[in-house]
Design a protein around this nucleic acid. Structure first.
Length: 118
DNA sequence: AGTATGACGTTTT
DNA sequence: AAAAACGCCATAC
C-alpha cells in the first residue's frame, strides 16, 4: 500500500467535525505538494471502504468540487448536518471553517504560520 | 505504449 | 473579478 494513501486517510480521518480542509492542503501534508488530484482519487476510491469523512474535503476556493450530477447535494447536506454553513452554490467560508484553524496544532509538519506572513 | 480523464491548483487573459 | 488555459499525476482504456 502506498504510504501516501495511508497518510491521506489518516489526515482526513483527523479532520475535526465542523471543519473542512482542501485537497491541496491534504496533499501537501501527505508529502505530495502536487498531489491534490490523487487525494481526490483516494477519496472516491476508498472513502466508503474506510468510512472516511470525505465531505470535509473541498476545493481550494472553498467550493464543493463535485459535479452537480454526482454527490454534490449529498455533500452539501452532510456538511450542513455538521453545522457548516454552505450556500446553495456549494461555497463554504474557509475563514471560519478551515482546518486547521488559526493557531491550532498541525500534525507535526513545518509550514510556518500558514497565514498572513510577516 | 500512448491517449484520455478528473472530487485540483496556479497562472494568464 | 471572472473565465480560460496550462500544468500535475495516478487511473482507465
Amino acid at each position: 500500500m502506498d504510504p501516501f494513501c495511508a497518510a491521506v486517510r489518516s489526515l482526513i480521518a483527523s479532520i475535526p467535525t465542523g471543519t473542512v480542509a482542501t485537497y491541496g492542503q491534504i496533499a501537501r501534508l501527505a508529502g505530495k505538494p502536487r498531489g491534490a488530484r490523487q487525494v481526490s482519487w483516494v477519496l472516491h476510491s476508498q472513502s466508503g471502504k474506510y468510512k472516511l469523512p470525505w465531505q470535509r474535503v473541498i476545493g481550494v476556493k472553498g467550493r464543493i468540487s463535485l459535479p452537480l450530477h454526482r454527490g454534490f447535494f449529498e455533500q452539501r447536506r452532510l456538511l450542513r448536518q455538521e453545522g457548516i454553513d454552505v450556500d446553495n452554490r456549494g461555497s463554504v467560508d474557509l475563514k471560519k471553517f478551515r482546518w486547521p484553524g488559526p493557531g491550532e496544532t498541525l500534525p507535526a509538519k513545518k509550514k510556518g504560520t500558514g497565514r498572513a506572513g510577516p
